[in-house]
Design a protein around this nucleic acid. Structure first.
Ligand SMILES: [Mn+2]
Ligand SMILES: [Mn+2]
Ligand SMILES: [Zn+2]
Ligand SMILES: [Zn+2]
Lengths: 158, 158
DNA sequence: CTGATAATGGAAATCATTTTCATTAAGGAG
DNA sequence: CTCCTTAATGAAAATGATTTCCATTATCAG
């Protein structure tokens, strides 16, 4: 109902229409939020944030929408080991370039990195080609993450 | 109490003694199982399997032991997206070489692969060096996984 | 062998995510 | 613009993996 919410025809509207999904207020609000942050938000983070501007939102809808977005390939879902899934927009203007993650096992901090992404791309492509052939496996995406201790957490453990 | 269970002084006994942890029957049983399988077992898988040979085991102990083993670096913990953690022995004879995973998003099947591990090692080392320096981040380990559809699941989706 | 206490296991508690189901609202047809 | 079909929503309850509590047990140094 909030006439004129995030109404402009965003880049994702076509994706929805083509797939036959309805463009609803909750979906727009969630996409708007993801589009405007670079953080790795949990479902609850998103619920709380969207709730501020659209209090009628339900946590269930957040989960459902995120699942839809992941299936559509618009959103990445990650597990950084803290017991809750984290989400990040995969495309669109304002989105970070292709990157991977550095996860601190001490405090949970996550750093996006893009170093060596070019060399990595090459290796990944070769590996994908080889694995697809050898295991007859159709590869859609990949995840790379380094686990360790961030600056702060290194001191604490002496 | 089962005198003569998996009693022989296994390779991990020193690790336990050095760290001041006790070598108990449940711990031995869990390590024995992990040592003898190449599967990616969940805590409950392990509980059920160990339960056959040592019925007194409790699920709580399985979780606690696995956490300990992960902290000691003897076991890897993975999330393949099916809502439960999976565990794999990280070292010892009989352990697979350094490898990564191919995860089917259709049926959950996980394939270990070692292709291009040598080239990968090089890249990983360079990346680690660079990231450690740039972000002052002490890297302990890394995970790489490819997501996609296995042979069977490709057909089903037409 | 014995004592201090680390480790265990059952039951209850947590907590993220999913399911259920009655209600609402996209959006195509008219 | 109004109607109508039905996809989408949200509150509440259910689920299911993992954690916490706490009384009891078993390891192992002395
Ligand atoms: Mn990121
Ligand atoms: Mn493996
Ligand atoms: Zn940290
Ligand atoms: Zn499959």
């Amino acid at each position: 109902m909030p006439r004129g919410f995030g109404v402009g025809p965003h880049w994702w509207c076509n994706r929805f229409q083509d797939a036959g999904f309805r463009i609803t207020v909750p979906r727009q609000a969630i996409l708007d939020l993801l589009n405007r942050t670079h953080e790795h938000l949990s479902a609850e983070d998103i619920y709380l944030e969207v709730h501020k501007i659209y209090p009628a939102i339900g946590l269930t809808t957040v989960y459902r929408t995120l699942e839809l977005l992941v299936n559509m390939g618009l959103v990445f879902k990650f597990d950084f080991g803290d017991g809750r899934a984290r989400y990040e927009l995969s495309q669109g203007p304002g989105t970070l370039k292709h990157h991977h993650h550095l996860v601190c096992t001490g405090c949970g901090r996550v750093i996006d990195y893009t170093e060596f992404i070019e060399q990595e791309k090459e290796l990944v492509h070769r590996t994908e080609r080889e694995l697809s052939r050898k295991y007859n496996f159709k590869i859609d995406s990949h995840q790379i993450q380094f686990l360790g201790l961030c600056h702060n957490c290194q001191k604490e453990n002496k």
